[in-house]
Design a protein around this nucleic acid. Structure first.
Lengths: 150, 150
DNA sequence: TATTGTTATACTCTATAACTATA
DNA sequence: TATAGTTATAGAGTATAACAATA
């Protein structure tokens, strides 16, 4: 029986995905660090931006940071006065996390700057290719998530 | 003047890329750890597989691991007898890294297993979409690399 | 003097599991 | 008893820069 990973195009696509992934991570992380944030910290700030805040659970779901790790990331952001923690009113087990005023300033500064940085690479792609990539990526992400859940 | 990141399709494509990236990382790393390797360790093993070895410099270039970090990763792999270090014959400044017999066994076991794991997600995509994604990813990676170099 | 790789430092993230307090 | 989040532990990667040996 033919091995599933011998499907035509699989290996090249995979190699390309891995390389693109690495290049993107590098390209993105290098810039994030110039904003004085680590990539997970940036994710948290970006996720909290333009919201009234959320619980640790929600934040962890959106950023894919597990709870134990999230506590540490939030500790460091709280220490820098970028986020605040307060107990949830209706359920005291929950902690409500939100950007402070300083955190909002950071978001307002860092988020567009980072988008702008990334756009330098995306600008090299024609719009149709962007669209094609979008649908392929969405499909692939769905596949990853289904497989992880399975 | 219109902001560059307002290019139509940029934001959705970016969001999708970030999410797909995270999903892929998670999907991949979770499995790699079951093979008793960290993602950087797997990268090193996979890069050395089916070669006669290479210098730290080459290995760092291919895996995108910086030299200081690479030393640590190699230390741990060497301790587990998966890779060997020996001085280069022609240039004693260089260290030649290669898989040991045990490392080759690890490669033979881990690499196909990981491909097989990843193929579970890729199998959900029709071949044409794979092809479309491949070209988009290749283009995008080129863009990242050019921008990083710039 | 330039290059290759190692060492040193300090920090951040990571997985995992036990624990506390609420519900 | 189950859930939300914290604490504890141990390890691994990261950036950065100084360093040794060699070219």
């Amino acid at each position: 029986m033919k091995l599933v990973y011998e499907k035509p195009g699989f290996l090249p696509a995979l190699r390309e995905l891995v390389r693109c992934n690495q290049a993107f991570e590098r390209f993105s992380a290098t810039h994030v660090r110039t904003l004085e944030l680590t990539p997970p910290q940036f994710d948290v700030i970006a996720t909290l931006g333009n919201t009234t805040g959320m619980t640790c659970g929600e934040l962890g779901e959106k950023t894919l940071i597990t709870k134990g790790t999230l506590t540490g990331v939030l500790d460091r952001l709280e220490e820098r006065k970028l986020v605040s923690r307060r107990a949830d009113i209706t359920d005291a087990r929950r902690t409500h996390i939100a950007l402070t005023t300083l955190g909002e300033q950071m978001f307002a500064r860092a988020f567009p700057a980072h988008l702008h940085h990334l756009s330098r690479a995306f600008d090299r792609l024609p719009p149709e290719q962007l669209k094609a990539m979008l649908s392929a990526l969405a499909e692939l992400r769905g596949a990853f998530e289904k497989e992880l859940a399975a």
